[in-house]
C-alpha cells in the first residue's frame, strides 16, 4: 500500500529526517514510534505530500505522488496533530466542507457525513458548533474529517494528544473499527501503550533515523530478558545471596527488595520452572509468583539508551 524509500529532509543545518524507509501492506497498522522531535510528523508530512523530500520517494500502491492535484491523493486521509477544524461551523458543515474538497457533492456528500459522524459517535451533535465541543469530541471529529472521502490509507499524527482516557478509548475503538474494515493505518505516537494496543508492527524512529522495524514480538526479542519473575519469598530474612542466584544459568538478572525477588529470564516456559525448583531445593520457599513482560518503554530504552518520554 505504502512504501517510503530513503526519505530525507533538512531545515538548514538540522536534519529532521535522515534516510527513513519502511513499507506498509494493505490492511496493516503500523506504529511510527519515537520521542518528540524524532521526525515522525515530518515523515508523515512527506508521505501526505505536504512536504517535498530533499531526496527519496513515497509510493502509494506502487506509484509516486506527482503534483498537487494527483488523484492518488484520494487514497490518503490525513489526521493532523492539530485540531484542524473550523470552530465557528457546526460539525456536519465541517465534514461536508472537507468532503467537498475531494469533489463529493449532493447525496454522496451527505451520506459520507452521516457515516463519519456515526463512526465517531457524534450524530446527535451534528448541528452543534465545534466551539461547543469538548477536547475529546473535537479529536473524534478531527478523525471523522479525514474519513469523508473513504481513503484506503489513514495517516494519524498523534491523534490522541491532550484527550482524557475515556475519549482516548473512544478513538481507539474507532480505529479498531477502521482496522476491521480493512483500512491501512500509519499511527504516530510517543505513547507506548497506544502502540502496543493497536499496531501490528512498529517502526521506531529517533533523531530522524529508523532504529527498529519489527513486530511487537520481534522487538521484545531484542531485549536481554523477555520476562521478569516477581517472587514473594516466604521468609524475607532467609539470607538469600544474590550472587548465588545470578550464578544460576537460567537467570539473566536478579534483584531483591523488601522480600520480593525479581529475576529476568529469556525463555519463560523453560527457565521459570527451573528457577522456582532451584529456590525450593536450596531452602528459599516462596508464597507468590507473578510474571511481567517488559514494555515498549524498555524496548526504546534498550535501543537508544534513553527513556522515551525524557528524550
Amino acid at each position: 500500500m505504502l512504501a517510503a524509500r530513503n526519505l530525507r529532509k533538512s531545515y538548514g543545518p538540522h536534519v529532521a529526517v535522515d534516510g527513513v524507509s519502511f513499507d506498509i501492506a494493505r490492511g496493516e497498522t503500523i506504529g511510527l514510534l519515537g520521542p518528540n522531535g524524532a521526525g515522525k510528523t515530518t515523515t508523515v508530512s512527506m508521505i501526505s505530500g505536504l512536504l517535498r523530500p530533499d531526496s527519496g520517494e513515497v509510493l502509494i500502491d506502487g506509484r509516486a505522488v506527482t503534483g498537487d492535484t494527483d488523484s492518488i491523493k484520494h487514497k490518503i486521509g490525513l489526521v493532523p496533530q492539530d485540531l484542524a477544524l473550523y470552530d465557528e461551523l457546526p460539525a456536519r458543515d465541517n465534514l461536508e466542507f472537507f468532503g467537498a474538497l475531494y469533489n463529493l457533492a449532493g447525496a454522496r456528500l451527505k451520506r459520507a457525513a452521516d457515516e463519519a459522524l456515526d463512526l465517531v459517535g457524534l450524530t446527535d451533535r451534528a448541528k452543534d458548533k465545534v466551539s461547543d465541543f469538548s477536547g475529546g469530541m473535537k479529536r473524534r471529529l478531527n478523525l471523522a474529517a479525514a474519513l469523508m472521502h473513504d481513503p484506503d490509507l489513514l495517516l494519524l499524527d498523534e491523534p490522541t494528544v491532550g484527550v482524557d482516557p475515556q475519549s482516548r478509548n473512544a478513538i481507539f475503538e474507532n480505529l479498531e473499527t477502521l482496522k476491521k474494515r480493512g483500512k491501512t493505518l500509519l499511527y504516530t505516537t510517543h505513547y507506548m501503550e497506544e502502540a502496543e494496543r493497536l499496531c501490528d508492527r512498529l517502526v521506531v524512529i529517533d533523531h530522524g533515523k529508523v532504529i527498529a522495524n519489527d513486530t511487537l514480538h520481534g522487538l521484545y526479542k531484542l531485549l536481554p530478558v523477555t520476562n521478569i519473575l516477581s517472587i514473594e519469598l516466604e521468609n524475607p530474612e532467609c539470607g538469600l545471596r544474590l550472587a548465588e542466584v545470578r550464578a544460576f544459568a537460567a537467570v539473566q538478572s536478579a534483584e531483591l527488595e523488601a522480600g520480593i525477588l525479581r529475576i529476568g529470564v529469556q525463555n519463560l516456559a523453560a527457565d521459570a520452572p527451573a528457577v522456582l525448583q532451584w529456590l525450593v531445593s536450596n531452602g528459599y520457599p516462596y508464597s507468590h509468583v507473578v510474571s511481567d513482560r517488559p514494555d515498549l518503554e524498555t524496548v526504546f530504552l534498550t535501543l537508544t539508551g534513553r527513556s522515551l518520554r525524557d528524550s
Binding site: 505536504l50 491523493k73 493532523p80 492539530d82 484542524a84
Partner: peptide
C-alpha cells in the same frame, strides 16, 4: 497555525 492548511494541502487541489 491551526493545521487547517495541512488538510487543504493534503486534498488534491491546485495552488
Amino acid at each position: 497555525q491551526r493545521g487547517l492548511w495541512k488538510r487543504l494541502r493534503a486534498a488534491p487541489l491546485s495552488r
